[in-house]
Amino acid sequence: NMTTNERRVIVPADPTLWTQEHVRQWLEWAIKEYSLMEIDTSFFQNMDGKELCKMNKEDFLRATTLYNTEVLLSHLSYLRES
């Protein structure tokens, strides 16, 4: 059983600085953390943090459901504000 610390993704605090690998790690973490289903992860495959942060609700909806979109966008905006 993993502790919270072991599951925590170590990525730069500012999502606009993320590499493609960071985006992948964040997505994998969010899927596990929030038990998200039905995400087309290939949609995010060649995307870095700058591109991710430019995405709006409609962009996310092409890859996943409305619920997942709201979870991911709210977590992303939380990270950008902190």
Rank of each mutant, 00 (worst) to 15 (best):
R7T: 12
P15C: 04
S74H: 10
T19R: 08
T69Q: 01
K32L: 07
A13V: 13
D48I: 04
S74L: 05
L72D: 01
A30K: 07
Y34H: 09
F43Q: 12
A30M: 10
D59C: 11
M55V: 04
V23H: 08
V9H: 14
T19W: 01
L73C: 10
D40T: 05
R8M: 09
T65K: 03
V11D: 12
Q20N: 15
V23I: 04
L17D: 15
E21M: 11
T64K: 01
S42K: 06
T4S: 14
S35R: 07
F43P: 10
E21K: 05
W18A: 01
M55A: 08
V11S: 15
H22C: 03
M47Y: 14
K57V: 12
M55T: 06
L72G: 00
E70N: 08
N56I: 05
L36K: 01
N56T: 14
R62I: 02
P15F: 01
N46H: 15
S74F: 04
N56A: 09
D59Y: 11
N56F: 03
S35I: 02
C53T: 11
V9C: 13
R24M: 08
Q45I: 01
T41Q: 10
M47V: 09
T64C: 03
M2H: 15
E58K: 07
C53L: 15
K50T: 15
E6T: 12
Q25D: 06
D40R: 03
W29T: 15
N68F: 00
Y34K: 11
K50M: 09
K57Q: 13
K32H: 04
A13Q: 15
N5T: 14
T3G: 09
L73H: 07
L72M: 09
V9G: 15
G49S: 00
E51G: 10
W26G: 00
S74W: 02
V71G: 02
W26Q: 01
L61D: 03
K54H: 03
E28T: 12
F60M: 05
R8S: 06
T3E: 04
S35H: 08
Q25M: 07
K57W: 08
D59I: 02
I39M: 13
T69A: 14
T3D: 03
K54T: 06
Y34S: 09
R24T: 10
I31P: 00
N5G: 11
N46Y: 09
I10L: 07
P12M: 09
H22K: 06
M47T: 04
T16H: 02
E28N: 04
L17S: 12
T3I: 10
D59G: 10
A13Y: 10
K50D: 09
E33D: 08
L76T: 00
M2L: 12
L36S: 02
T65Y: 00
Y67D: 11
A63V: 12
W18R: 02
M55C: 12
H22P: 00
E51V: 08
D59E: 07
L66F: 02
E38H: 06
A63S: 09
L52M: 05
N56Q: 11
S74M: 11
I10S: 15
D14V: 04
S35M: 05
L27M: 10
H75R: 09
Q25S: 05
T64S: 02
L76I: 04
E38V: 06
Q20I: 03
E28Y: 08
Q45L: 12
F60K: 01
R8K: 15
S42W: 05
D14R: 02
P12F: 06
G49T: 00
Q20D: 10
E28Q: 12
Q45C: 10
S35V: 03
T64P: 02
P12Y: 06
Y34D: 03
V71E: 04
R7F: 07
S35E: 09
E6A: 07
V11Q: 11
C53M: 08
N46M: 08
R7E: 11
M2Q: 13
T16W: 11
E33V: 03
F44L: 06
T41I: 02
Y67M: 09
L66R: 10
T19K: 08
E51M: 09
R7V: 10
V11N: 14
Q25P: 00
L17G: 14
N68C: 05
E6H: 04
Q25W: 05
E33W: 04
P12D: 14
S35D: 12
E51C: 06
W18Y: 01
D14P: 03
Y67S: 14
D48N: 06
K32V: 07
Q20Y: 09
A30G: 05
L73S: 09
L61Y: 01
M37D: 13
F44G: 02
R62L: 12
P15W: 00
N1L: 08
Q20K: 15
S35W: 03
Q45E: 13
P12N: 11
F44I: 05
E21V: 09
A13M: 11
S42Y: 05
M37A: 12
F44C: 08
W29A: 14
L72S: 00
A13E: 15
R24I: 07
N56V: 10
T65I: 00
P15Y: 03
Q20H: 13
Y67R: 14
Y67A: 10
E33P: 00
F43I: 07
N5W: 07
N5V: 06
M37Y: 14
K32R: 10
E6L: 12
N5D: 12
I10R: 14
A63Q: 11
V71K: 14
A63L: 13
N46V: 04
D40E: 11
D40S: 06
Y34P: 00
T3Q: 08
I10K: 14
T16G: 08
M37L: 12
F43G: 06
W29D: 15
L36V: 06
I39P: 02
G49Q: 00
L66G: 09
R7H: 05
E21C: 04
A30E: 10
L17F: 08
R7G: 08
R24Y: 05
E6V: 09
L66D: 15
L27V: 13
T65S: 12
E21P: 02
T69S: 11
C53R: 02
H22E: 14
W26R: 01
T16P: 05
H22I: 06
L52Q: 00
A13C: 11
W26M: 03
N5A: 12
K32A: 12
V9D: 10
E6N: 11
L36H: 03
M55N: 01
D14W: 04
D14Y: 13
Y34N: 15
